[in-house]
Simulated assay, not measured.
Amino acid sequence: MKAMAWMVLLAAVSGAHAAEEESTPCDNVETDQQTYACAAFSKQAAERELQAAYDDLIQRVRDQYADQGSQVSALVGQLDAAQKLWAQLRDADCKVETFAEKKGSKAFQAAWDTCVAQRSDDRSEYLQSIGQQ
């Protein structure tokens, strides 16, 4: 029952990632092993997207404030600090979410990967919205 709940959750989380690529480990998830592979894939894809969103934001800041060097430096410093704090909050939230799973187990890793993927997707959307005109 627990594995089935994870598969449903993973299918919802990974749907956007699967649409972007032709074939992923999240296609036709039917077994626990496939669930674990999908969770790992989703986390990696979400972290890549998060890094791209962050890099794009830094570039937007540099472009928008190109003639104001000190403001760029200050804002980039604030963004770096915010990103580090966000990562700490994400990890703390995911520790709470995965508390019921035995650390070191495949179920724990799948739950952790799913949590990180969800939080990273949310953060990517937020970063993409900053500085848009």
Rank of each mutant, 00 (worst) to 15 (best):
K2R: 13
W6V: 00
W6D: 06
W6S: 06
M7I: 05
M7E: 03
L9R: 10
L10F: 03
A12G: 13
A16D: 12
A18C: 11
E20C: 10
E21M: 13
E22F: 09
E22V: 10
S23Q: 14
P25E: 00
C26V: 04
N28S: 14
D32V: 00
Q33T: 09
T35S: 14
Y36D: 03
A37M: 02
A37I: 00
A37N: 03
C38N: 04
A39R: 00
A39W: 03
F41T: 02
S42H: 03
A46I: 03
A46R: 01
E47C: 06
R48P: 08
E49R: 10
L50Y: 07
A53E: 01
I58R: 07
Q59Y: 02
Q59K: 13
R62W: 01
Q64K: 13
A66H: 12
Q68L: 12
Q68H: 14
S70V: 09
Q71F: 15
V72F: 11
S73H: 09
S73Q: 13
L75E: 08
A81R: 14
Q83V: 02
W86F: 07
Q88W: 01
L89Y: 15
D93C: 08
V96D: 14
T98A: 12
K103H: 12
G104H: 04
G104F: 05
K106D: 07
F108R: 04
A110C: 07
A110K: 02
A110L: 02
A111T: 02
D113P: 09
C115I: 03
A117N: 03
R119K: 11
D122R: 06
D122S: 06
E125T: 06
G131T: 12
Q132H: 10
Q133W: 08
